[in-house]
């Protein structure tokens, strides 16, 4: 069984000293999502699980100093998590050789399957040291990917603005979205910078708007689409819509899907003389 196979692989990695720690999913009480476990001994691998509640993007833990202190890790990733890993690699945040990556072929998480999984384009990770399992439930037609966004964009700009005013008014600025994002790795986030206050930090709608615009745009052309932020939001703001908006624009304007090509140059910080400019007079 796949879970056994995963444990076996991890046991060997720890036993032969390839890695010092396994970052994987551990069991949780029924009805709850799995939680991250950090296993340092071959015996410990029995804690590892693999099921449709392995929701978290564990890549986010790679940026934590306390995790780094444990030594070379092996990490369990799904295809969407892996895209974040590739982006980190492109942005010099990760020496690929210093991580052992265990890819899991993924049928999708959540019951029922999450939206991002129903339209998942990858399912099987591509750049891993080892890939376990195979896909048994393929994604629906790829065209479904932008359905939610397209539906949203049918609203008038005024309606969209009203929607976000209503949604963002509920934001409590807990920054869980930032915390779980594998690509939010700044040592000091600009919201924490007060001279000057580039982003209004007041606990107001203005501050919330500024924060969410910034968060979404800092992820533009980078976001792996793992939806960790959306899951993490305690008040249920649909951040996925903003991420999708950037992903779609990135794909349509630059034929680029972030995290799918380790060799590619990041989109921001490069340019093409032929980039479109019909909006510039």
């Amino acid at each position: 069984m796949l879970e056994q196979k995963l444990r076996q692989t991890c046991r060997e990695l720890l036993a032969n000293g390839t890695v010092k720690v396994i970052i994987g999913y551990g069991a949780a009480p029924a009805g709850q999502a799995t939680r991250a476990v950090f296993i340092t001994t071959p015996e410990g691998v029995e804690q590892l699980v693999w099921n449709d509640r392995c929701e978290a993007n564990l890549v986010a833990y790679l940026k934590r100093p306390e995790v780094r202190a444990l030594g070379k890790p092996a990490i369990v990733v799904k295809a969407c998590d892996e895209r974040a890993l590739v982006v980190l690699q492109q942005e010099a945040q990760l020496e690929r050789a210093n991580v052992f990556v265990i890819g899991m072929a993924c049928d999708g998480i959540g019951a029922p399957r999450e939206a991002k999984c129903r339209s998942c384009e990858d399912q099987v990770p591509r750049f891993c040291d080892v890939v376990l399992g195979e896909v048994t439930k393929p994604a629906d037609a790829a065209s479904a990917r932008w359905d939610e966004l397209a539906e949203f964009m049918k609203k008038s700009p005024e309606e969209r603005m009203a929607y976000w005013q209503q949604e963002l008014a509920r934001c409590v600025k807990c920054y869980a979205c930032r915390q779980v994002c594998p690509l939010c790795y700044c040592q000091r986030c600009i919201v924490d910078k007060n001279r000057p206050t580039v982003i209004s930090t007041s606990p107001s709608l203005k501050g919330n708007f500024a924060w969410h615009v910034t968060r979404a745009f800092h992820l533009a052309a980078r976001c792996a689409g793992c939806d960790a932020c959306t899951r993490a939001c305690p008040v249920g703001i649909n951040l996925r819509l903003l991420n999708q908006s950037m992903a779609k624009a990135t794909e349509e304007n630059f034929q680029c899907r972030p995290g799918t090509d380790p060799q590619a140059q990041p989109l921001i910080g490069n340019y093409a003389t032929g980039d479109k400019e019909e909006f510039i007079r």
Partner: peptide, 21 residues
Amino acid sequence: ESTCSACFACVRTCPYQAAEK
């Protein structure tokens, strides 16, 4: 340098190769 996360976006962007690793 104390807050730089070494993503090197500046290095990629700099038209003069003045930003260095």
